[in-house]
Design a protein around this nucleic acid. Structure first.
Length: 171
DNA sequence: CATATGATTGTTAAA
DNA sequence: TTTAACAATCATATG
């Protein structure tokens, strides 16, 4: 019986007066974003880490999870497609075309990711709490971009000692 | 050479 | 409650 919810709802229940989000094209999806902010963030973060060494990134939403797979498929059908926006658009369209049941598996995965995120967040928070002084590393590789193959020669100097594979299974 | 951009939707944190 | 911004991708484009 929840009849009188009373004050709880009753605000947006009738008119969707406020619905400024995604006006129509969302322009850029944000009102006025500095543009570079988003991309820069990621790249900058890599080095800005100073403050947040292991800041857990937001877990991919069901849509992204689906997109990950979609992208792979899309590329197979469109190996020549080079625009990322193309996949995004196609994926978005398809995503909306999918039924909740199909999104279920993706949502499930997203749920797990979120779970992990919560965990990471806790750990991350803890780190912040324990203010470990002195952790100032000077990595001034501002322009020293480590491309994928930064490992040049590394002939065989037996340095690899051993890898321990810890299989942790925690339910 | 390094960084920005584009396009999608969902989720999350803050006001 | 509602707003605002970010999450991945990757070839292209610009400084």
């Amino acid at each position: 019986m929840k009849i009188a919810k009373g004050k709880g709802a009753a605000r947006t229940e009738k008119k969707e007066v406020s619905l400024p989000v995604e006006d129509r094209k969302i322009g850029k999806r944000k009102a006025a974003l500095k543009a570079t902010e988003s991309s820069k963030k990621r790249a900058a973060k890599e080095k800005i880490t100073k403050k947040d060494p292991d800041k857990p990134k937001r877990p991919p939403s069901s849509f992204f999870v689906f997109l990950e797979e979609f992208r792979k498929i899309y590329k197979q059908e469109h190996p020549n497609m080079k625009a990322v926006s193309a996949v995004g658009k196609a994926g978005g369209e398809k995503w909306k075309s999918m039924s909740a049941a199909e999104k279920a598996p993706y949502e499930a995965k997203a749920a797990i990711k979120k779970s992990d995120y919560g965990k990471l967040m806790t750990a991350y928070s803890k780190k912040q709490e324990t203010d470990d002084g002195g952790a100032d590393e000077e990595d001034d590789y501002k322009h020293s971009h480590r491309s994928k193959s930064e490992v040049d020669g590394q002939d065989d100097s037996d340095e690899s000692v051993g890898e321990d594979e810890d299989d942790e299974d925690d339910d």
